[in-house]
Amino acid sequence: MTTATARTGVDARKILSENGALGGLVVLVVALSILAPTFLSTQNLINVGVQAAVVAVLAFGSTFVIVSGGIDLSVGSVAALSAMVGAWSSAEAGLPGPVALLLGLATGVAAGLINGAMVSFGRLPAFIATLAMLSIARGLTLVVSQGTPLATPDVVTFLGSNLVPQVPLPLLIMLVFFGITGFVLSRTYAGRSMYAIGGNEEAARLSGIDVRRQKLVIYALSGLFAAVAGMLLAGRLASAGPQAAVGYELDAIAAVVIGGASLSGGVGRAFGTLVGALVLAVLRNGLNQLQVSPFWQQVVIGVVIALAVLLDTLRRRSR
């Protein structure tokens, strides 16, 4: 890259090269604004933000894992289990709401720690360890709930409602977790080790990073974020469902990858993941408003995911 070209297009190029998915999101928003007259209203954009929140928070947690070269398939099930433990603790065991909320969050951390232990000490491939947890956590959700939805404690329901009219709390929580994720990734030892481990695990180990311990931290964070996402989902419905968040792990992974992270590790950013989650939410919202046939919706979603990542790959290659 010569100085001349760098100087002429430095701003646009910098923004685009760092945020490839943003281009895709902009194209999508412009297209939908033209096709669906009600898309670009303030209320609808707020709706999109709220609808993105659960997947975004899950995906922020997954960003840690994917940056470190791992994968976490259990986040959807862990989200459901955490919310269910929270709901059960208050509805069935009669504990106060805040205690129930904390127990739910602790459940997520515990599931994450077990994932981390299986990966680092058990030396299971992350794919298998978290696939096992996907099944275990979903099963435990059914065991705890006995297959029926449970009402959430007020404090959890509050998390899913509006702080003041027009200002939904899920949207704010998503932005807070976006900030936390960005901070952890770029400003903390744990975050820097995620990039190091994802870039080259052996080199990270040789340079003095306790890889095993960091992996425990990484999966525990993913579990905690999953628990928060589960609380948001349950809060929005005022109810924790045994079948809640089925398949959300794939949305989370898609959001991270659309956001420009590499599944082979070492690359990924909080902003990209946020954009990735918004792409999915905008798409689903738009498909409803355009009343696309149910049979075609999944096709369209798949094509857009592929195009978004393809765009990003081409852009990187041309750099």
């Binding site: 009600t38 609808n44 709706n47 609808q51 939805p149 809640a244 689903r284 919202n285 409803n288 408003q289």
Partner: peptide, 16 residues
């Protein structure tokens, strides 16, 4: 058949 999706889809359809 999902409650969360029922919420999101209805919200979206209410816009149009």
């Amino acid at each position: 058949f999902d409650r969360a999706k029922g919420l999101d889809v209805t919200t979206n359809l209410l816009q149009s």
